[in-house]
């Protein structure tokens, strides 16, 4: 499902960005749409890494608890990142995301409405996927 949402998002963003690039100075619109989608994509990347890191830690703790009674003696099966490191990465990436939004809007002067439209693209992709799944289920 997630892979399909990503595909929908890419298709929607390109479909929304290409018509903007057809007229002069339309690159601001196109860049805004693609930049907005990239912002939400970066946000999704941050969240996915954090959730998978935390759940990986939980998995590893459970595995160690099971192994503690067996011959393995409760040693970690693979190196797991510390929670503090995961949080530092998450907050640093969020700061980078905010700086990227600032740079796109103020320095590159992308169209603000296009940025909002670009952020909407993944949401519309999720809605489209939900509708598709609903039709398939009924």
């Amino acid at each position: 499902m997630t892979r399909r949402v990503v595909l929908w998002t890419c298709a929607l963003s390109v479909c929304l960005a290409v018509p903007g690039g057809l007229w002069p100075s339309g690159w601001r619109w196109a860049g805004g749409v693609l930049g907005g989608a990239a912002l939400l994509g970066a946000s999704a990347w941050v969240i996915r890494d954090l959730v998978e890191g935390l759940m990986g830690r939980a998995d590893d703790a459970g595995r160690r608890a099971v192994d503690a009674g067996g011959p393995a003696g409760g040693r970690p099966s693979r190196p797991v990142p510390a929670v503090s490191w995961l949080l530092v990465k998450c907050f640093t990436r969020h700061v980078m995301l905010a700086l990227a939004a600032y740079g796109m809007m103020v320095r590159l002067q992308f169209d603000p409405v296009a940025l909002v439209v670009g952020v909407t693209a993944p949401v519309a992709a999720v809605a489209a996927e939900a509708v598709r799944l609903g039709h398939r289920g009924s």
């Binding site: 939400l40 995301l97 909407t120 993944p122 999720v126």
Partner: peptide, 14 residues
């Protein structure tokens, strides 16, 4: 969970 968190995050980005 990841999908839901991203959708919530999208509102903050708006």
């Amino acid at each position: 969970l990841i999908l839901g968190l991203v959708l919530i995050e999208s509102l903050v980005i708006y």
